[in-house]
């Protein structure tokens, strides 16, 4: 179901401003914890944009996984490693201007390409936004192999993350006694 057109326009501008401002804060804030919180703002804004284009399921997945899980993980890592009270040294001032020029050039290039190409319009294709039923059917028919591969990758990466993050003391305790003798 699509929202009314005026509301959709206002929501588009509001969410775009929110996303851009949050993203700029993510890359410029010296305090890493605040940067992570503004990443949360960006993620919620992108979820709102998903809602706006009619992808409700993706919006909920975005909030559930990104804001719920990944951001929590990031905040944990920041708490465990970073010295939050010492914001200096999080950005390198010397390389900031070349990087800004490079990313602005990248944006200009992408914007030129987007302005030049024809974009698909719903009236031209004639299709309504994809429903959740269609998405589910696609996931278990055409995309069933990528779907399963993603789950294997997920399990492998979780086992790998646990193996990497386990503290050396625990690893030594679990090793066979012959290695320590």
């Amino acid at each position: 179901m699509q929202p009314p057109i005026v509301l959709a326009q206002a929501g588009l501008w509001f969410l775009s401003a929110l996303v851009i401002a949050g993203a700029i804060l993510v890359v410029t804030l010296g305090n890493l914890f605040r940067a992570a919180l503004s990443l949360g703002v960006v993620l919620v804004g992108v979820a709102g944009l998903f809602l706006l284009v009619g992808a409700e399921f993706l919006a909920f997945v975005q909030i559930l996984i990104y804001v719920g899980a990944i951001l929590t993980l990031v905040v944990f890592a920041i708490m465990l490693t970073a010295r939050v009270h010492r914001p200096a040294g999080s950005t390198a001032a010397a390389s900031q201007w070349p990087a800004a020029v490079a990313s602005l050039a990248l944006f200009a290039l992408l914007a030129c390409v987007i302005a030049a190409i024809p974009v698909p319009t719903p009236t031209a294709v004639g299709g309504a936004p994809v429903s959740l039923q269609e998405l589910g059917r696609e996931l278990i028919t055409t995309l069933v192999l990528p779907f399963e591969v993603i789950s294997v990758v997920f399990v492998a990466s979780m086992v790998g993350a646990i193996a990497v993050a386990a503290s050396p003391r625990q690893r030594r305790a679990q090793a066979p006694p012959s290695s320590s003798a």
Partner: peptide, 21 residues
């Protein structure tokens, strides 16, 4: 908006020194 977000992310990768950032 997507390309702006991408460019901002590239800027962050280029300038940040902290691995978490």
């Amino acid at each position: 908006l997507g390309s702006a977000l991408f460019a901002i992310g590239v800027f962050g990768v280029l300038t940040r020194r902290n691995a978490i950032a």
